[in-house]
Design a protein around this nucleic acid. Structure first.
Lengths: 207, 207
DNA sequence: CTCAATATCTGAGGATTGCTCGGCTTTCTC
DNA sequence: GAGAAAGCCGAGCAATCCTCAGATATTGAG
């Protein structure tokens, strides 16, 4: 009795066979295409399923709700960015950190080029999940910042918890705002310069 | 013929009689209460109308859609904050700007205390409108920043357009993130310190 | 005060959309 | 190749946004 009151929900998880992994990928790609070509309003679950070539029921086998689709797209994007940042920080020269900071900023901005329609929806999706999902916040990059601080000890005034929080969210806020507002600054070198100035100014203690 | 194809839309504007002004206020207050007590999911247009004691049709006389209600709440909040900031900047001492910056930060943070459930929804509503409504972005505070720069000429390295954009969105990003994530930092002095450090560091040129 | 013009309010219901569930098909395992 | 497990299907329910045709309230000129 009560055979599948749980399983039905739990089934909405990771696919196991290769076929279903493809299904999930197809659904996410279809979502991205709809977002890019027709905008957020057109991103209905039925439309996604149709565009992906699956039944609506299949979609809901993997995603518990519409929001989860955006969430999954965001998670992939975020992992991609984090990986690039980690690669950059691996080359850090503790004597002269500014080039690394600049490189990291450039990498971050690089990830925000193209597919503006998709990115906008992803950002808003991320923010909607923020209080619930700790991974949704800019805090994921905190280990990188901590590493930067400890390896460059002596060069900077320590940030403390609040300082790290503010710096990470400040960067995210500036970049996300540029993306959402579709600011032409996004592509310009002056924008990169300003972000570097923001980071270095904060690290140096505002004095 | 074609008597009211336009008027019907145009009617969704400002109320003229005192009675309808009250209606709009009541609707906004009801929305705030629902948000605070029952969360965003409960904020349906029919529920708002019922809670405000009006028919759903009345609500749609003034607000073209659900989104517009959040937008109106955001506009009021924003005007309130901007007014407070203007008052702070009126007392600026060009010789020693840091106290004014600190005061402005404190004022901004003060506006983010209490009614967390409401604020979260407002912030997300603002961001959703960002590309369309220029007033929705942090750019509304740009005149204040420009004034600060010109009155303190010589103390700071000029920011330029990109610098101003980044600084304003960075502050907004940090504060909004704290609010949305319900971070306990929001109330702590260390958070204020970190924001001041962010601003001063950026103004001083990151060098 | 009267009454017509104007402003405001009403609420049933059309159109859409998110999502469920019982059952069918494909793939895996032994 | 047979049974089990994984994957897929899609009609339709419930919830929601929003419209529209007309009722009610207010105003102000005469």
């Amino acid at each position: 009795m009560a055979k599948q009151s749980k399983p039905l929900i739990a089934l909405r998880k990771e696919p196991v066979q290769a076929r279903s992994q493809d299904t999930v990928d197809t659904i996410l790609e279809a979502s991205a295409q709809i977002l890019q070509k027709e905008g957020e309003a057109a991103l209905t679950t039925n439309r996604i399923a149709a565009h992906a070539g699956f039944s609506i029921g299949t979609l809901y086998q993997y995603f518990p709700n519409r929001e989860a689709i955006l969430s999954a797209m965001a998670t992939r994007e975020q992992a991609h960015i984090l990986k690039k940042l980690e690669a950059v920080f691996a080359t850090l020269d503790p004597t002269d950190p500014e080039p690394t900071v600049r490189e990291a900023v450039a990498a971050l901005l690089g990830a925000f080029r193209g597919r503006h329609g998709v990115r906008r929806a992803i950002i808003l999706g991320v923010m909607r999940r923020m209080p619930d999902d700790p991974r949704a916040s800019a805090g994921v990059a905190e280990p990188l910042l901590t590493a930067l601080e400890s390896r460059c000890a002596g060069h900077f005034v320590p940030l403390g918890e609040a300082g790290r929080f503010v710096l990470l969210r400040a960067i995210a806020g500036a970049v996300r705002a540029a993306a959402i507002e579709r600011s032409p600054l996004l592509g310009k070198p002056a924008f990169e310069d300003a972000l570097v100035r923001l980071v270095m100014g904060m690290l140096l203690g505002g004095r």
